[in-house]
Design a protein around this nucleic acid. Sequence first.
DNA 1: GCCAACGTTGGC
DNA 2: GCCAACGTTGGC
Length: 167
Amino acid sequence: MKPAKRKPQNTENNPIPSQFWLLKSEPDAFSWDQLVANGDKGEPWTGVRNYQARNFMKAMRLGDRCFFYHSNEGLAVVGIAEVIALAHPDLSDDTGKWECVDVKAVAPLPRHVTLAEVKANPKLEKMSLVTSFRLSVQPVQPDEWAEVCRMGGLEATPKPAEKNKRK
DNA sequence: GCCAACGTTGGC
DNA sequence: GCCAACGTTGGC
């Protein structure tokens, strides 16, 4: 059944809801090291089969930053990636329904920030990683972004390039 | 390996 | 359109 169409989704035209995100991957399927190995070529973030996650990807802009989180094994934020291609059809999908963005590795976190640490930090209790733990693509609030970077040992938070900054 | 959370499916 | 059954994700 088609999802009820209430207010049109229209994420394309949306003023940006977020410039920070979190991407989950099982390291068995695709790890941070593999993304690093791909260099500037990056990787299409295929395989997402969840409408909410897809809509977040459609809202991503070039230069948006993403935490790279290892699920299942590792259970930690391990690095920072950058969106290098806007949402486009997911070639691993026959139905044409699903889309993906491309991302590349920007920097590893000097210290991995574990799920346990995130859960233990009151500043992060509203983070989607805690509240919507099954979502594989999540928005991250700027204060959450800064906090996780701090915990990860990054003094200067890598941000989207200054030129991309609004206001 | 178990099981809770939660998205999806399908009968009504 | 509701909601129970079912399947999948992912932490533990």
